[in-house]
Design a protein around this nucleic acid. Structure first.
Lengths: 146, 146
DNA sequence: AGTGAAATGCAGACTGT
DNA sequence: ACAGTCTGCATTTCACT
């Protein structure tokens, strides 16, 4: 985005802290009226700085206890857009990135059980032209932020 | 949480999709009145299933353009708690997990530039008794959720 | 869990700087 | 261009059924 001043950054921080905060509350924090805050938030969304608003849910509570990282090796060249389209419908895929390393992409997957993880792996492999995958199971989550 | 029925799950899904959706909108989706939805959301928050609501911000725009995943190989046995304590003060570390694989831990790091990434790597290595690290730079973020 | 009413917050148009 | 005020309308929130 072109001009992002101090106030925009403070509005962003407020929304990251609580996405359901009212415009008036944010305005009180940053010293602006509610309509002024809304105008800025709208611009921030239109320009792509704010991608959206989500609820952060405790995965443990829902029984999605097991997590794994999957290195994916593709056959030939597949565009990032194709990979994204292939994996987006799989809800177990929490994170996907293309990387500059020996692997082509790295996924982060959450599942309820080992059989569930295995089934998810199968669906990931079927979704695109994939040569092989290498999975490493997460033992404990030390840090989670950003 | 004790009793989480189908409707609770659908409310969760709606809030994950858009944390600023109104209770009336969610109620229309799940077949409940707005006050009923609010009561369920409040309970979901009190019981810890919903940890909060945040805005998802494009990191590129804020200048934290480069991201890397770091496989860490430790010397001897280090407890997860020690690793956490060592890396928590480093703000560039966005995610850290111990894993069951050839590496002992995997970090996800965000930096403003390659020199900044290098400096962060140095600090990560100094923070604990580490044998060696293997970094892979992220080319593009395909999916980011959960 | 639904209903209805009061309080609150939102979104648009308008004005001033 | 950007902030403030006003206003009609939607939403939240409470008491009650």
């Amino acid at each position: 985005m072109a001009g992002m001043d101090e106030i925009d950054h403070r509005i962003l921080a407020a929304l990251v802290a609580d996405a359901r905060a009212t415009y008036a509350e944010i305005g009180a924090d940053v010293g602006l009226s509610a309509p002024a805050v809304k105008r800025r938030v709208d611009k921030l969304q239109d320009s792509g700085v704010i991608r959206g608003f989500t609820a952060v849910v405790d995965p443990e509570v829902l029984g999605w206890n097991i997590e794994a990282m999957i290195d994916v090796y593709c056959q030939g060249r597949i565009s990032p857009a194709e990979l994204r389209a292939a994996w987006l419908p799989i809800p177990e895929v929490v994170q996907a990135s293309t990387v500059a390393g020996s692997a082509d992409a790295v996924l982060r997957v959450r599942a309820r059980s080992v059989p569930h993880l295995e089934e998810t792996l199968e669906r990931i492999r079927e979704a695109a032209a994939i040569e092989r995958t290498e999975s490493t199971v997460v033992l404990s989550r030390l840090i989670e932020r950003g």
